[in-house]
C-alpha cells in the first residue's frame, strides 16, 4: 500500500545525496548515511541541538531551521551548526536583583542592538526576539521572561546577530530572575513544606505503608476525586 516514494537531491556540505521526498533534514541525513553525534538531541523540536543553515536553489538567501522540524526540498544546500561559541555569564542568582542594571552588568553587549530584526526573522519558534530584547533593555524583566518562554536555546539568533548579542542567554537570565525574584512565592507550598518538616504526615504515611494490597485497593477505590 506504501506509495512509490519520490526522491529529491540535497547537498550536505556540498555533497549530493538522493533522499526521499518529504522527510525532515535530520532523517534525510541519516538516510544518506550519517550517524549523528552532534546536531541531534531530542528529535522533537525541544532541545535546539539541530540548528541548520540552508539555501534553496535560485535563491541567494540563507535560511535556518531545526533539522528535526524542517522538510528537505529538491536542490537544497545545507550544513548544520552543531555548536556556537556563545558568551554566557555566570552568577549567583540568589544575590541578584531583578533590574536592568543586573542584566547590563552580565551582558553589557545588550545595548549594541542595531534593531535589524534578524533574530526575530530567524527564530524557528517564531518568537519576537528583538521585542523581548527591547523589553530587557527597558528593564522589563517580566515581559522579557514571558515573551521568551518558548525559547529552545538553539542559538540561531546569536549566530545571525551583527551586534554579537546572545539573546537566548539574556532571556534565560531574565526568566530566572523573574521566577526567583519577581513572581510571588507560592504560600501554600511553603506551608506544606513546613508541615512535612514537622512530621505532620508521617504517621499516616506509615500506616499506608503497612497496609496490604487489598486494604489499599479498598481505600483507593473509595477515594473521592476532585471535580
Amino acid at each position: 500500500m506504501a506509495e512509490e516514494k519520490e526522491m529529491v537531491s540535497i547537498y550536505i556540505m556540498g555533497k549530493q545525496y538522493r533522499v526521499p521526498y518529504g522527510v525532515t533534514i535530520m532523517k534525510a541525513m541519516e538516510y544518506a548515511g550519517y550517524r549523528f553525534i552532534r546536531g541531534c538531541g531530542c528529535r522533537g523540536g525541544f532541545c535546539g541541538a539541530c540548528g541548520t543553515v540552508y539555501r534553496k536553489p535560485g535563491d541567494f538567501r540563507l535560511k535556518v531551521g531545526l533539522a528535526c522540524q524542517t522538510v528537505v526540498e529538491d536542490g537544497m544546500h545545507l550544513t548544520q551548526i552543531p555548536f556556537y561559541p556563545a558568551n554566557k555569564a555566570t552568577y549567583n542568582l540568589e544575590e541578584l536583583t531583578p533590574t536592568l542594571a543586573t542584566l547590563l552588568r552580565h551582558y553589557p553587549e545588550m545595548t549594541r542592538c542595531l534593531g535589524c530584526n534578524s533574530c526575530t526573522r530567524i527564530c524557528p519558534q517564531e518568537l519576537q526576539v528583538m521585542d523581548y530584547m527591547a523589553a530587557a533593555q527597558r528593564g522589563d524583566i517580566a515581559k522579557a521572561a514571558h515573551m521568551s518562554f518558548d525559547c529552545l536555546m538553539c542559538g540561531l539568533c546569536a549566530s545571525r546577530c551583527p551586534a554579537e548579542i546572545v539573546q537566548y542567554n539574556v532571556a534565560l537570565l531574565a526568566r530566572r530572575l523573574y521566577g526567583r525574584h519577581v513572581a510571588p512565592r507560592a504560600e501554600h507550598l511553603a506551608r506544606r513544606v513546613e508541615e512535612i518538616k514537622a512530621g505532620k504526615f508521617d504517621a499516616e504515611i506509615e500506616r499506608l505503608m503497612k497496609m496490604d494490597r487489598l486494604e489499599l485497593q479498598k481505600l483507593y477505590d473509595a477515594r473521592d476525586i476532585e471535580p
Partner: peptide
C-alpha cells in the same frame, strides 16, 4: 521555585 523555575502561577 527558589532556583527561578517559572511555574504557571
Amino acid at each position: 521555585e527558589s532556583l527561578g523555575c517559572m511555574f504557571s502561577k
